[in-house]
């Protein structure tokens, strides 16, 4: 066999192989249905993941995003919005999708840390210089302090706010459920209006200039400051707050039907890698990997839903279902 022939054969084989692998490299799209404040986080993370995935498998993956109120988004998935993965504000909303059989029960055990790759908490956004001297939750019930928070019936963030206040009162010396209810009643008396979502409340506080303090997701508070003026607002991180664990999961029915399970799982797992954790930290979420540096203030005590309220199912039923504590104590201002 002469050399020339050999080269031809090798070139042909190499060409065929490269064409074959090129044909195998596929274009995949994923849809991530998420809640309101994660827009910037996932815009960033999706790019990072696409790069990683192309390097690893050669496939080009495009992740599409949809954002809205957490419960509304869950409702959309239930009604057929084809999400390969959901990344929502609270486990209860994912449970609602599970009830319709789209996600397998026990989803929260699939990924580490209750399937929450990052956590967040509730902080206070106040006017520059903190003129009303708001330091902790008990400052919110003082007369003359106007508090902005969204409606817990429609907003996931508002439910965290409500439960954070409740947990605070519960854990004070001599605190119990009755005391907590009294505390939250007083707090709601200081709320002039309830918007339907977290971004709505932020706009009310920031754009319309209503209220002395906004109860907000930690990352929302930072975003508002960065986007709208560090010279106008301050963030107050209370010494105690609630540990918000926004969970993520694959929507089994959709991923299996579309054949995207592998990339969907890789996408969520990538949130737990150093790069994923760094991106979360960059957008003011608290990474669960404690080695990742974060700019966020330490909070002395963080109460969890499981420990303070016995889980989301129970918390939802006691506090936010029709006739729950919120309905009992909230009287709209006439």
């Amino acid at each position: 066999m002469n050399n020339k022939k050999l080269t031809t054969i090798i070139t042909t084989v190499a060409l065929t192989l490269s064409i074959a692998t090129a044909a195998l490299a596929a274009d995949v799209t994923l849809l991530n249905v998420s809640y309101d404040p994660t827009r910037e986080l996932y815009a960033d993370f999706n790019n990072a993941f696409a790069k990683y995935w192309q390097k690893k498998t050669g496939d080009k993956v495009t992740v599409k995003q949809s954002h809205g109120g957490s419960s509304k988004q869950a409702r959309g998935v239930i009604d057929g919005l084809e999400a390969d993965v959901v990344t929502l504000a609270l486990a209860y909303d994912i449970d609602a999708i599970t009830e319709k059989g789209l996600i397998k029960p026990g989803w929260q055990k699939e990924l580490p840390h209750n399937s929450s790759p990052y956590t967040s908490t509730i902080v206070f956004l106040v006017r520059k210089g903190n003129p009303k001297k708001i330091k902790n939750w008990d400052d919110l019930i003082k007369p003359g302090v106007s508090v902005i928070t969204p409606n817990p019936k429609t907003s996931g963030g508002a439910r965290w706010n409500y439960l954070a206040a409740w947990a605070f009162a519960q854990h004070q010396p001599g605190g119990n459920d009755a005391k907590a209810k009294e505390f939250v009643t007083k707090l709601l008396k200081n709320v002039p209006l309830l918007d339907s979502g977290a971004r709505g409340s932020t706009n009310t506080f920031v754009q319309r200039g209503l209220g002395d303090v906004l109860l907000a997701w930690e990352n929302e508070a930072f975003l508002a400051i960065n986007e709208l003026g560090p010279d106008k607002f301050d963030i107050v991180t209370p010494p105690e707050s609630i540990l918000a664990e926004p969970p993520v999961t694959v929507v089994d029915k959709v991923a299996d039907r579309r054949g995207t399970r592998k990339v969907a799982e890789a996408y969520l797992n990538y949130l737990y890698t150093d790069e994923g954790q760094n991106i979360a930290a960059k957008h003011y979420y608290r990474p669960i990997n404690t080695k990742i540096p974060t700019r966020l203030a330490k909070i002395k005590k963080l109460y969890t839903i499981d420990q303070a309220f016995g889980g989301w199912q129970k918390a939802q039923k006691t506090h936010f279902a029709d006739g729950g504590t919120f309905d009992q104590i909230y009287a709209p201002k006439k």
């Binding site: 239930i78 009604d79 057929g80 084809e82 039907r257």
Partner: peptide, 23 residues
């Protein structure tokens, strides 16, 4: 949404045939 949604009248049939109407 009530007609074509996954919980609606013909949503499940549409999904079985991979036809998307709502969303």
């Amino acid at each position: 949404v009530l007609i074509f949604g996954l919980q609606g009248w013909i949503g499940p049939w549409l999904q079985a045939h991979d036809i998307r109407i709502v969303f």
